[in-house]
Design a binder for these strands. Sequence first.
DNA 1: TACAAGATTTGGATAGACCCCAAAAAATGG
DNA 2: CCATTTTTTGGGGTCTATCCAAATCTTGTA
Lengths: 147, 147
Amino acid sequence: MEPECGLALSARKVEYIKFIFETGGTVRTTMIATAFSVDPSTITKTLAELAAGGYIRHVPYHGVCLTETGERHAEFLIKRHRILSLMLVRNGLLPEEACREASQFESLVSKKAVDRICHFMGHPRQGICGEITHDNDCLEREEGASS
Amino acid sequence: MEPECGLALSARKVEYIKFIFETGGTVRTTMIATAFSVDPSTITKTLAELAAGGYIRHVPYHGVCLTETGERHAEFLIKRHRILSLMLVRNGLLPEEACREASQFESLVSKKAVDRICHFMGHPRQGICGEITHDNDCLEREEGASS
DNA sequence: TACAAGATTTGGATAGACCCCAAAAAATGG
DNA sequence: CCATTTTTTGGGGTCTATCCAAATCTTGTA
């Protein structure tokens, strides 16, 4: 089993997945297009790629919703954003700055790095733009896992 | 005067500028091509863009060297890399990991953020992959500058 | 229920960043 | 002064992200 580095999605796709997750349920193309000020046709195309990747289920003309995989991944994406934002705040940035900066580069930070930072910070529950949740995956390294 | 956010160069160009700076003096196309395992023609093209941006002086068939601007910028790029790597180490990553992760996303971190982190860490001199130098630009915020 | 209006998708294009290959051009050491 | 090496040119490619216009699907409603 490959380590799952968490770098499979481009920055844009990460934003879309997080948006769909946070909106919840079935999300319509226009909703995403409006939220990101992008042409609906662009969204349709990107959605097709996300569907091909198994992250979402897309019913043409009706909207998309996350698959089981997509949901699990979305949780990671959001946690990554919050952990990184929190780290930045704890290292001198203002909350809004931290959130903004993290959004810019988070898609390039590996899961392993996020887990280490999360561990180092003591698995904080309170992020600066929402609560942080911790699954086994992130806690299991605690009890002497391999890597 | 615009704030100079430090996001003008792509990740690849950042690597090239840092490499040229660290190599010092006049650097030849092949040297860069070899260092990054990329076709020389690709380097020539990217070099043309960096020259157009005023970062380097390119004498065809002879090599490139940084301009005054390029040198100043290179110093920032290297400092950014070291500050971010150091922050990651201080937040739980192993040195090599930190360096590798920082290289991936550093091009997307603003100068302002770097300055804040640098300030927060107390303007450290010892990075994990080299010494960190601090210019006025980064220290002046200390004595109550505007932003 | 048929249709107009609105939402969505298709198809066609563009743009930027990177990259490669083959061939031309320049530099250089004998 | 020429063969070898280095570099540049010219021509393609891929990928991601976007836009526009035209087709297509849904739906509320008359």
